[in-house]
Structure formats: structure tokens, C-alpha cells
Nucleic acid binder design. Structure first.
Length: 808
DNA sequence: TAGATCCTAATTTTT
DNA sequence: TTAGGATCTA
């Protein structure tokens, strides 16, 4: 036992040891970036287990599934799988869902309630707005949802909402007085459908602990120790749950970094961490200030910046590494040049320091900035990957099949019902749908139940439509009955087949059709691999416990719950991350690290973002965001800014970000103040396309220009042979001709039957190209054509295309 | 019913 | 600029 404990403490520094060793009472661990936060947290859990605490009495909460999985793995390595897996380790949402299922009936939900993801919520709100006959231009579903979400996270139920004058007055001022009605209707719908959204999980957990003392008693008694990761990002709702659950033992350990609180816009309360010691005056405070990730210059630069924030806990981080290079500034005319300079910087570093592409990250404040960067990376054949939105689960076909899954698990889910009732088309058109919705509303039931109403004819439904609707619901009902008995994979396949969705996409031979089919298959196979994972887990468990039990059926509802709580990055991770430059927003970079980091778009109005210039608390959040960006870098950090940038179709000229000046100039290679002002007194210099040219090597070279100083500090390229003004001559999708290539009057389009695969053709708009493939039946023949001036082949519907054989 | 066309709005995002 | 949506039309 002691030996194991020794092993846990081995390799920890003194602060880390102290933080791990102090198991009793409230503990606040302020963990600077790169200070070994996860290690401390996992070691604490391991140490608790070594001390003999029951694994199932330890509750460890994280924000992302990824963090939970990672910690679980690390704990397993320390104390063995057997004990590690019994620890209550998971995201706030996944853990609370387990409690809520237990007590669902008390709260008026079926214990089989399902979860709405954000897009479900938005479309539910949309139908509420419609139902209340409000204008969705004023009541924008996304905004309304955000408002409701904010309310829920502050435990303001719809009833409370309408009685709070300060809220309703605010809504009237923004000319949206009926948000409270939308809120109420939305809540009603969710209940009726047996559905909770993400915020409901926290809200209902609070209601459960508040109104049902026996539930509070029973749940809180299960745990002797509670640990919370990323505490600076908790919202009020989460804060209160944690507080209540740890009420008796007060063995609550929270870990976080107030300097990295960047989610206030979605309800995170930095006060939770700032005021922790007010709630728990006896709390022990541990600071992890030793940074193992970054060089001295980077850590010092970050410190000097965050020092400008008033609202923070005192902390002095320091690097244990070498001083390293100073921070580089990259100045450019516009975002294209910025991108080119960054990519050449990457290529340079790869060459000189034999770095790998995977060592680089390019960060930006807004997703839109990735475009220019991608283009530059593509042109130089640098492999890259973008971390962003839920690309896979956002695809229409994936959403469709997911909606079928959800509907089968919970036929009362109206959003899913609406999504797939006519997909593939079953002749249930808009009119029938509207009538059914009216029926459901009048009868006060869900769409699914309404289909079986005797009174449908009264609502204007034709009997033919009723037959079709019943065929649909019968099919769903049949599948529903299989949920409990069938394993998820078999059921998923059945759903894909019985619904006709799979066939529908498979019969579409076009390129998109094939891609869609592949995505459907991918989703089904992800069900399969989920089952495999669970099986492997189960077997490991059996082996560890030396027992032999029957493998339980892994059901579709279980899969669904896990998938709906899965973050995008979790999935992206599985794609080959190997040796690619990473592109992402600063927000999504939190928790990651890269030896070489470029932060692009360091300009006023962009970073700090224009919307946040008003209040000082917003500016502080932006500053923390920049702090996060800086501290991602291990070896080298470059900050780039452009003189002008195209944003929302307009060119903006913004000065370099104030944040650059806020960094102590000692840590910057060529600080702004020491630079000569380009073009002299106040004169701005416009970027014209022919100022950036490319030499033979394909590297950017700045052309001499009167308004420019002899030698730019940043364009450190030799000003050798500059010949090809690239931007105009290099065809790219964005440089696509808007008009026609040929004279429309004299362009004789050939009939579609005259084209053959492999033929060279000319398209009125897209110019010359070659037909790679023809598909589809006669009036709808599609051609896949590679145009000489476009990198990607296009699919063209021939009946609309103005095209002829290539003229020689 | 799907493709074409028009219009509008545009930080950040986990669960 | 451009993406997403709503609306129009073959």
C-alpha cells in the first residue's frame, strides 16, 4: 500500500504533492497552463483509492467526455482498471442523467426520457414561435434559445421568468415581450415529448435536489469525495449542484484556472472560482505555478498580459524550461498575405528545425478566418486539419438517420418525427403535416399519438394521407418494440433498411449520393464499434473481477445517449491526426498544446472582438482568451496581424490589437513601438494585388514599393526574382468567373444525348473541361466534369447546362 | 420535389 | 464574401 502511494507521488513537484496529499475538506487548486493539472487530479483520485476509499464513493466531474476518458485511463494505469472503472467519473451531463433517470418519475418525466441536442432545441423553438404566430425574424430561434438557456442556467423556470420584472422589462426593451410565452410553450413541448435539453439536465437536477430531500439525501450520501475539473467554466446551475452534493462532507476539490475562463458568453461564472473561499472559508489553496510546457519568454509574455486583468486570483507562473525565442510579430497587408507568411514560416521551421506538421497550430478568433489560411496551405501542399463544428453529425443524412434512431427510442419526439416523416418521400406533404400538427395541438398530444386519433378527418386530413401516416407510425412502432430486446447494431441496420433511408441514398448514384450512403454506413458502423467498445469494457471488467456474467444487450437508447453527449472533437480525433497542421479557434484550442503556435488576426475589432469592446468584463474575457492562445505554445509563438482584411464582404482596416502592446515588449522580437510607421504620418497603405508576388520557389516576395521601408522586419525573405503576379493567374474556386466565358449569343449548346464520358467540352460559364462520368436517367442526367480552371470536379445537371463539344 | 434564385445576417461552443 | 434559409418555378 505504501509502495503504491509512493509511486503516486513519484515525479510530482512539491506543490503538486501537497495538492494531492490533502484529501480532507475543501480544496482549491489553481492550476496555471501547462502545470500538470490533469496529473494532479488523477493522482488525487488514485491516492484516495490507495487510502481505501470505495471507488464508487468518488465523484469526479469534467466538462468534456474526452477529459473524462483521458482521466479514467490515467487512473487505470495507476491503480488498475478494476478499481478505476468504478469511480463515478464523467461529464456533468452524463453523470446527472444517471441520477435523473432514477428519479425521473418524481420530476414528471418518463425514465426513458431522451435528450435534445442544440439543433433539436432550435427547431423546437422554431415551431413554438410559429405556433404562437410570432415573427421569427424578431424572435430568432437561436437567440430565443440562448435566452432560455441563460435563464435555465440561473434556475429561472418559465414561471419564474414571467414574474421577474427585470427580465420581462428587458425583453420588452428589446421588443421581444413574448419570449416568456415561447419559453413556456417550449417547456410544455419538451415535457410532452419526454425530452430534456442540455440545460434541463442541470436544471432538473437542481429541482430534484431542492424539492425532494430524500433524493438529495440518497444521492449525496453515495459520495465521500467530489472533484471538479475546469471549475472556472462552471455555471450557476452546476455550482449549486456541486455545493449541495458536497454539503455534508465538504470534501470538495475544485481545479481550474481563473485566467482561462473563456465561456462567460454561455453562462460560465468566473465568480465560482474567485469566490470559492468565501463559500468554504476553511478551504486549502494550492497553486500550481510551474509551467512545464512553454519557454520562459512565452510564460512571461502571458503573465505580463494577464496582469492587466483586475478580476483575478494572484498567481505567478514560471517556466522550468529555457528562455527560448522571443515572440515574433508578423505584419501583412491583408489576410491573404498573412496566410502566405504563416505558411512560409511553417515551411521554414519544418526545414530548419526538422519540425513536423503536427507540431504546428494556427489559431484564430473566428472560424471565418480559416478560409485564407486554408487556401495558402493548400497551395503549398501542406496537410492540415480543421477542428470545428460537428461536421459529421451536421450532415443532413446523418441527422436523418439519427432522427429515426431517436424516434424509434422515443416515438413522442416531435422534432425527429417532423424531420423524417417524409424522408424518403412517402407522399406526406406540407399540407398533411400542418393538419396533423393542428390535430396534435388541439388534442394536446404528440404527433405520433395524434396519428392514431379517430378524429383526424375533422382536421382536414385526407383518408389517403391518414393511411400513409399510419403506415409510417406502424413501422416506427414495430421498430420501437425491438429497442429493449435487440442489440443496437442489429436495430440500427433494421432502421436504416425499414425506413427506406438507406435504399433512398444508395439509389442515388451521383457523387453526393455516394458520399451520403457512405455516411449512413459510417453511422451504422459507429453503432457497431460502440458495441465492440462496450463489449471489450465488459470483458475487462469481468476479468478484473474474476466473474463470468452474461453480456447484457447493448441497446440503441444507450448508444444514442452516449452519442448525443459526444463532443465533436472526440470524433474528429479518430480521423488521422497524423502529421497535419491544426487549424482552430482559440476557444477550441483550450487544453491542447503545440510546439509552434501562430495566432492570426491580432487586430482591434477582431481580437479583441468588436462586440466585446463595450464592457470591461468582456475585455477581460477576451484577454483571458488571448492568454489561452499564448499558453498553447511550447517553443515558439508568432502573432500576426494584417493591415486590411475582408470581413463580411467589406474591407476593414484595423490597427494591431491592443493585446500586442499589453505584452511586455521585453518578450517580443520586434515590438510594435520600435517599428517604423509604414508610409509615414497617418497615411494608410492600401494593398494592391501586385504587391505580393511569387518567386520561382513559390515563396512570397515583397515587391519594392515607395510607401514601404527598404527592409521589412517581417517579410524576411530575400527579395529575389519576383515575376509572377500570382493572385490573378492562379485559378481557384473563389476566383471563379461570375459571368460567362463565351458569348452567350453565339454559344450553341449541344443536346445532352450528344455527350460521352471522356469527352472534352466547353461550358458557357465554367469553360473547358472533360466529362469524367455520366449518371442518372434521361431527363436528369448528371455529368461529373473536371473543368480546367477548377481544382474539384463539378456535378452538373445536363438539362440545365449550357455546354458544347470543345471547339478546336 | 428539387433546383434556382433571392435575401439576410454574420464571435466564441460543450453538453 | 458566403452560407443558410425561405421562396419561387420547371
Amino acid at each position: 500500500m505504501e509502495n503504491n502511494a509512493d509511486a503516486i507521488f513519484e515525479g510530482l513537484n512539491s506543490e503538486q504533492r501537497n495538492a494531492v496529499a490533502c484529501l480532507e475538506g475543501p480544496v482549491l487548486i489553481i492550476a496555471g497552463a501547462g502545470s500538470g493539472k490533469t496529473r494532479v487530479l488523477t493522482s488525487r483520485v488514485a491516492y484516495l483509492l490507495e487510502k481505501g476509499f470505495d471507488p464508487s464513493s468518488i465523484l469526479c466531474l469534467t466538462f468534456t467526455k474526452k477529459a473524462a476518458t483521458e482521466m479514467k485511463e490515467r487512473i487505470s494505469l495507476m491503480v488498475g482498471e478494476r478499481r478505476a472503472r468504478r469511480v463515478w467519473m464523467g461529464t456533468f451531463h452524463s453523470v446527472f442523467i444517471r441520477f435523473l433517470r432514477e428519479y425521473a418519475e418524481k420530476l414528471g418525466y418518463p425514465s426513458s426520457f431522451t435528450i435534445y441536442d442544440t439543433s433539436d432545441s432550435v427547431s423546437a423553438i422554431k415551431s413554438c414561435v410559429k405556433e404562437l404566430q410570432l415573427d421569427d425574424k424578431i424572435y430568432k430561434p437561436k437567440e430565443v434559445l440562448a435566452r432560455i438557456s441563460m435563464a435555465k442556467n440561473n434556475l429561472i423556470t418559465d414561471q419564474v421568468y414571467r414574474n421577474r420584472s427585470e427580465i420581462t422589462i428587458e425583453d420588452s426593451h428589446s421588443r421581444k415581450p413574448r419570449i416568456c410565452d415561447i419559453y413556456s410553450l417550449y417547456v410544455k413541448k419538451c415535457r410532452q415529448n419526454g425530452v430534456m435539453d442540455f440545460d434541463d439536465i442541470l436544471l432538473n437536477m437542481n429541482i430534484l435536489l431542492r424539492d425532494f430531500p430524500e433524493a438529495l439525501e440518497s444521492i449525496s450520501a453515495r459520495f465521500t469525495h467530489i472533484l471538479v475539473d475546469e471549475y472556472q467554466d462552471t455555471n450557476f446551475s452546476q455550482y449549486l449542484i456541486i455545493k449541495k452534493l458536497s454539503m455534508h462532507h465538504r470534501n470538495i476539490c475544485v481545479v481550474g484556472d481563473d485566467s482561462q475562463s473563456i465561456y462567460a458568453f454561455r453562462g460560465a461564472k468566473i465568480e465560482n472560482i474567485l469566490n470559492f473561499r468565501k463559500d468554504y472559508p476553511e478551504a486549502r489553496l494550492f497553486k500550481l505555478e510551474r509551467n512545464y510546457r512553454s519557454t520562459g519568454n512565452i510564460v512571461n509574455a502571458a503573465n505580463s498580459l494577464i496582469d492587466k486583468n483586475k478580476n483575478r486570483l494572484p498567481k505567478e507562473c514560471y517556466s522550468v524550461g529555457e528562455e527560448g525565442d522571443k515572440i515574433k510579430l508578423i505584419k501583412s497587408y491583408n489576410e491573404q498575405e498573412e496566410a502566405v507568411l504563416i505558411t512560409s514560416g511553417i515551411l521554414d521551421t519544418v526545414r530548419k528545425e526538422s519540425a513536423r506538421y503536427q507540431d504546428f497550430a494556427i489559431l484564430y478568433r473566428t472560424n471565418a478566418q480559416s478560409r485564407a489560411l486554408e487556401e495558402a496551405l493548400r497551395k503549398r501542399n501542406i496537410p492540415y486539419m480543421i477542428y470545428s463544428g460537428n461536421s459529421f453529425f451536421d450532415r443532413a443524412e446523418v441527422k436523418d438517420l439519427m432522427a429515426y434512431f431517436k424516434l424509434v427510442v422515443n416515438p413522442n419526439d416531435d422534432e425527429s418525427f417532423k424531420r423524417v416523416v417524409n424522408k424518403p418521400t412517402r407522399g406526406i406533404g406540407g399540407t398533411s403535416e400542418d393538419a396533423l400538427a393542428l390535430a396534435a395541438r388541439t388534442l394536446g398530444c404528440t404527433l405520433f399519438r395524434a396519428v392514431y386519433s379517430e378524429r383526424l378527418l375533422e382536421f382536414g386530413l385526407k383518408s389517403a394521407a391518414i393511411t400513409k401516416l399510419r403506415a409510417f407510425t406502424d413501422m416506427i412502432d414495430r421498430l420501437s418494440r425491438l429497442v429493449v430486446t435487440t442489440d443496437a447494431e442489429t436495430l440500427a441496420k433494421r432502421i436504416a433498411d425499414d425506413s427506406g433511408l438507406y435504399r433512398f441514398y444508395r439509389e442515388d448514384n451521383s457523387i453526393e449520393g455516394q458520399a451520403r450512403t457512405a455516411n449512413i454506413e459510417e453511422l451504422v458502423s459507429s453503432v457497431a464499434s460502440y458495441i465492440q467498445d462496450r463489449k471489450a469494457e465488459f470483458e475487462a471488467e469481468q476479468e478484473a473481477e474474476g466473474s463470468t456474467g452474461e453480456m447484457p444487450v447493448i441497446r440503441l437508447d444507450e448508444f444514442l445517449e452516449n452519442i448525443s453527449l459526444l463532443s465533436n472533437i472526440d470524433i474528429e480525433d479518430e480521423e488521422d491526426t497524423n502529421n497535419k497542421v491544426s487549424l482552430m479557434t482559440v476557444h477550441s484550442s483550450k487544453g491542447l498544446e503545440f510546439p509552434y503556435v501562430y495566432v492570426s488576426g491580432m487586430e482591434e475589432n477582431l481580437f479583441p472582438s468588436g462586440g466585446s469592446l463595450a464592457s470591461s468584463s468582456d475585455i477581460e474575457e477576451e484577454r483571458r482568451l488571448f492568454y489561452v492562445a499564448i499558453t498553447r505554445a511550447g517553443r515558439k509563438l508568432s502573432l500576426s496581424f494584417a493591415d486590411s482584411r475582408m470581413r463580411n464582404g467589406k474591407t476593414e482596416n484595423n490597427s494591431p490589437s491592443r493585446f500586442i502592446r499589453e505584452i511586455d515588449s521585453r518578450y517580443i522580437e520586434n515590438p510594435l513601438d520600435e517599428q517604423r510607421v509604414f508610409g509615414g504620418g497617418g497615411q494608410t497603405f492600401g494593398f494592391s494585388r501586385n504587391t505580393t508576388s511569387y518567386g520561382q520557389s513559390g515563396r512570397p516576395v515583397r515587391m519594392p514599393r515607395q510607401t514601404q521601408p527598404q527592409q521589412s522586419q517581417y517579410g524576411s525573405r530575400p527579395s529575389s526574382a519576383a515575376t509572377r503576379p500570382s493572385v490573378q493567374t492562379r485559378p481557384s474556386a473563389s476566383a471563379a468567373p461570375q459571368g460567362n466565358r463565351y458569348n452567350e449569343a453565339t454559344f450553341n449548346a449541344a443536346p445532352m444525348s450528344s455527350f460521352t464520358i471522356g469527352q472534352r467540352i466547353e461550358h458557357l460559364r465554367f469553360g473547358p473541361g472533360m466529362i469524367l462520368d455520366l449518371s442518372g436517367r434521361v431527363p436528369d442526367v448528371k455529368a461529373k466534369i473536371r473543368f480546367d480552371d477548377f481544382p474539384e470536379p463539378k456535378i452538373i445537371l445536363l438539362k440545365y447546362a449550357k455546354m458544347r463539344a470543345e471547339q478546336k
